[in-house]
Write a protein that binds this DNA or RNA. Sequence first.
DNA 1: TAAGATAAGTGGTTAATAGTGGGTTAATTT
DNA 2: AAATTAACCCACTATTAACCACTTATCTTA
Lengths: 152, 152
Amino acid sequence: MSSQYTFTGQFTFSIDSKNRINIPAPLRKQFLTKDKKTFVVTRGIDQCAWIYPINEWNFIQNELKQLSSLSKTNRIFLRNHLRHANILKFDSQGRFVLPQSLIDYSAIKKDVTIVGVLNKIEIWNPNLLRKIDQSDEIDDQSYEELSERVNI
Amino acid sequence: MSSQYTFTGQFTFSIDSKNRINIPAPLRKQFLTKDKKTFVVTRGIDQCAWIYPINEWNFIQNELKQLSSLSKTNRIFLRNHLRHANILKFDSQGRFVLPQSLIDYSAIKKDVTIVGVLNKIEIWNPNLLRKIDQSDEIDDQSYEELSERVNI
DNA sequence: TAAGATAAGTGGTTAATAGTGGGTTAATTT
DNA sequence: AAATTAACCCACTATTAACCACTTATCTTA
């Protein structure tokens, strides 16, 4: 079953002195109805933070629960994926506190760029995102492979 | 049936002069409602201590009962997993006393890093966890195997 | 199109909670 | 009976979360 979420768009906001980040209203609307303001922030695979609505995260969790801790690979994988995951809620203004560890990991200073990517939201240092934009080109071969799986 | 617990996140606390460790509030909340503060501390497979809520532990015990003692591996495994298991409770502040044997096994000195891993909580010496972080890389082959079992 | 109304983004203050330390009494142990 | 350990209670401080307030932007309607 595919996700019910359709986060799209890009927004540049600021992080305040108490490490609060405001979620752009267009994205926020999808939380209020479906998930009662609860979500998970964790490390992205790239140098950014990822936000999952709680029921998206539950799906991931259920997959992880299948892994036995008797396997060393599983233990490492589980630990490293779960230790950076924080279950949070929005305040009454629609903001949340980004944990210090994720601020460090994402190298966030004053401004943040918030990007909707369907079932998750990414939080970036604007400068890093710009840099990646320029360097991370998709080569023709990869596009060919993609074309066999995605029809757009 | 999979676990009802969803421990996540990482916290660094201190162990006090009476060997008491505080359980981080976000993790503690899951105990209060479901298990009345009773849990089991035992040796982790890695060099850390594992905490299971009591009904998780009961579930694991039932799994262990399936293992025949005719197998030498089973005997060793069972013995080592059960002999270090302590049934404990939180005090009124949400702390517990970590048994000396587990302090020794985990090489815990002043600080502890507490990691939520879904159905269990790990107690680490922060330095050891850091070291493992760097050395225990998951190789590509293992990732390939994982990808066939977990879809995230 | 202008003015009012509503919503969105940002900032700060206060009240509650969490983390830590220690002391006192009860229970075990030697 | 003394000593050690464990349970229980109280207290301090820092952090966090809830609350309130203001400004800017957007939308609505005359």
